[in-house]
Amino acid sequence: MAIYVLRRVLNMIPILIGVSVIIFFVFAMTPGDFVDSNQKLTPERQAELRALYGLDKPVLERYFIWMGNVLQGDFGYSMQHQIPVTSLLNQYLWNSFMIAVATLFLTWTIALFIGVFSAVRQHSWFDALVTLGVFATMSFPSFFLGLLLIKFFAVDLHWLPVGGMISTGSQTTGWAYVWEVAKHMILPVIVLTVLGVGSLTRYFRTNMLDVIRQDFVRTARAKGLKEKVVVYKHALRNALLPAITLLAFELPGLFAGAIITEKIFNWPGVGQIHMQALEIRDYPVLMGLTMLLSMLTIVGNLLADIMYGVADPRVRIK
């Protein structure tokens, strides 16, 4: 098992190198660079700045310079923010992470309950209603739902703040600070949960329906087991297996940020940083963030395989 994990970790190295090559060249080949985004600069000043940032060198050389620094643990400086990429990301990543974790927890819990319940009562009115609701929520654009919630709960009712992470000029500390951030989180988390819960509900419902039709569930019934035992012990546990993979794949999503929702609620998350970096071609930030997400994706994959092995005796790694 230890050797298996080690082998998989070693496998990550060539994959990450490949990913970095592709991403770097895609970014580098996009027309324009960071200096172009400021149109007030004279051509001389532009050339000066390009030389300063190293943007005048050939692409290949730039890649190796960047790679060399990364190998020494240096992801470079953000051109826009003028601070190291690592400290920039560290500052914003966790804001996005908070929202994502809360959303993940809510989405999975709600989807699991509703999905399983509507599978057990397939074709009932509850099931029909869930299907309707699922498609309705999935088709809402996030900006529409977000603005609607702001209008109702923040503007009209004054129950919740309009946006941001803390109130402007707020000096709270300790539990008061936690409470303040939590209040600001509610609306964005609701939006993301509503948008995400639909497809996951369908997923759990389908999985459950697949398993419920199998012979071993009929066996369990023929044994005269209580219906609860049949559904939850025999059917549900098997239906949850494929979900493990899905859960592990959520890992990069926890740090990716939600661009549109963060924008609407003015949440200082990494999604906004990502978007800005794209707009003004802040290469070090783009590269740093993308590499982080690739690494998390690969780690998520590895976790999925390990967890699957633990949960399913048929694929247990010997």
Partner: peptide
């Protein structure tokens, strides 16, 4: 009733055609 049926089930049992599909793979 469902309850009585459950109670009587042990007296009448079934052996399935597919010996693999009829066993819970995780048990």
């Amino acid at each position: 009733s469902k309850q009585d049926l459950r109670q009587i089930r042990p007296e009448m049992q079934l052996v399935f055609q597919d010996p693999y599909g009829s066993l819970n793979p995780r048990m």
